[in-house]
């Protein structure tokens, strides 16, 4: 399947990925190649086959119902990884949503 530049622009918007016009052209071409390659799966009969999401055989793993141990890092240390951390308020300041 050939992807159009418009489809690629739509996907880029879903991914919140800013692409230049030149990149949109390039990814339309390259994604078409990859999609063309993976479409070979259509020929595999999967009628009634369950989907595999993970291979551990584990399910619903809960932690022990006990007091949490000391954290590996303090909240301020974790937040401080952000360039937008405001030490005074102890918060990360984001641009206005509205």
């Amino acid at each position: 399947m050939k992807l159009t530049k418009e489809q690629v622009a739509h996907v880029a918007n879903l991914a919140r990925l800013g692409l230049t016009d030149e990149e949109l052209e390039r990814y339309a071409h390259e994604l078409s190649g990859i999609v063309g390659y993976v479409e070979q799966l259509e020929s595999v009969d999967t009628q009634g086959v369950a989907a595999t999401a993970q291979v551990t055989g584990l399910s619903t793993i809960l932690r022990e119902d006990a007091e949490l141990k000391k954290p590996l890092a303090e909240p301020a240390e974790l937040l401080n990884c952000s360039q937008r951390f405001d030490e005074q308020s102890g918060q990360i300041i984001v641009p206005n949503v509205f």
């Binding site: 799966l41 595999v44 999967t46 086959v49 989907a51 999401a53 291979v55």
Partner: peptide, 12 residues
């Protein structure tokens, strides 16, 4: 995605 997960089962 779902198709790939099904074929993944067959690979296993």
């Amino acid at each position: 995605y779902k198709k790939a997960q099904q074929v993944r089962t067959l690979i296993i």
